[in-house]
Nucleic acid binder design. Structure first.
Lengths: 206, 206
DNA sequence: GCCTAGGTCCCGTTA
DNA sequence: TAACGGGGCCTAGGC
């Protein structure tokens, strides 16, 4: 990994165009060729970048200024990052080796597993039929039966937003066309989320 | 901005938990307190991070090892990043100053402006009534009239996905209840996108 | 290989 | 301020 602190101006041209005026920034060059331009603030997202695989070429403009050109996977025809380097304040390289990688836990899948093990917490007497019940428009997170034998479709989300409610509505419409599922009355839906947005709540009660 | 190359182990606990085994990495500390842990590959996203505002405290564990603790906006009760520093290979600080910021061009808004100026490209004889036509559930991107005087609602997207079609469907349902708009027949919808996903196409023709 | 859904999403804009 | 919608989204999983 190469770390360069430099006064620079950056121009990206690709799916959109973006321009960064001349200022002092960090330019990070990873050994897969990817380039990240960071300022001293903001969040984890760089101001401008090039995703791997990429290639950095150091050149000089007609009027003698240092210019770095970074091409993406499609080469000179695809996304391009032009970095005009005015002054280099620091330039260092470091051998980091391969990273063993990240281990995560606690996202939506985990939430779904918990609810699959304890469907009774959603509604009394609820029992699991199966997880990821397949339909023509995608899998229903949890298909359950209540104490009266009626089917209940459960949509699990970390954040309850309007499109989640619509997703559940689509499933319900489809499932209710299946006569084998609505033997004991129509299929109901439960929207389970850690957080429900107001717009979603309005639509859900509709 | 402080740049540290170090052999370290990182643990995040917050909305989820994540663990990074001991390895050599770049630790970037920005002057708003945010911390980014990068490996020498992957994409622009750090392996682990803490968003601003954040505070870094350098401490020592019971058994005498160096441990950095980063707390997020909610302090010790909220998100926490624990960095066990085994060996520091490089440690440098740089004054970057404020960044003038990024200028973008060419995203959805720009596409909408282009279509507003040339509605005829969507359908022959189409003329613009207004952009961002307000409704109870949000603004319609473009409201137009065709050559027979019927209203046409246009939803503009860079990528045509299923939720865009549903958004347009909601608008159409609402607009068709407005008698002043459907004087010359019902309100039609046009879904304009640079790219249409197959799932969206299926729903749209439904 | 494409396509879909989720994210410690981030981020701007607006009510 | 909170919420909603877009993103050069990125990334993992399914078909």
């Amino acid at each position: 990994m190469r770390l360069v602190i430099a006064r620079c101006q950056v121009d990206y041209a690709g799916r959109l165009t973006a321009h960064l005026p001349m200022a002092t920034r960090l330019i990070m060059v990873k050994n897969d060729g990817s380039v990240l331009v960071h300022s001293d603030g903001g969040s984890y997202k760089p101001l401008n970048w090039m995703s791997p695989p990429a290639r950095l070429r150091e050149g000089v403009t007609e009027d003698g200024r240092v210019e770095w050109t970074v091409h993406g996977k499609d080469g000179p025809d695809g996304d391009t990052l032009r970095i005009l380097v005015d002054e280099v304040l620091s330039d260092s390289s470091h051998d980091l080796g391969l990273d063993p990688g990240l281990q995560k836990d606690g996202v939506e899948k985990h939430l779904q597993e918990l609810l699959a093990d304890h469907p009774g917490t959603l509604a009394p007497g609820l029992t699991l039929v199966r997880r990821e019940y397949p339909t023509a428009i995608g899998p229903v997170d949890l298909l359950c039966r209540d104490d009266r034998g009626s089917c209940v479709a459960v949509e699990v989300k970390r954040r309850g937003d309007i499109d989640g409610v619509e997703q559940l509505t689509r499933y319900l419409e489809l499932l209710n066309r299946d006569s084998t599922l609505c033997l004991n009355g129509s299929v109901r839906g439960i929207f389970a989320a850690q957080e429900i947005r107001p717009q979603a709540r309005v639509l859900a009660t509709d």
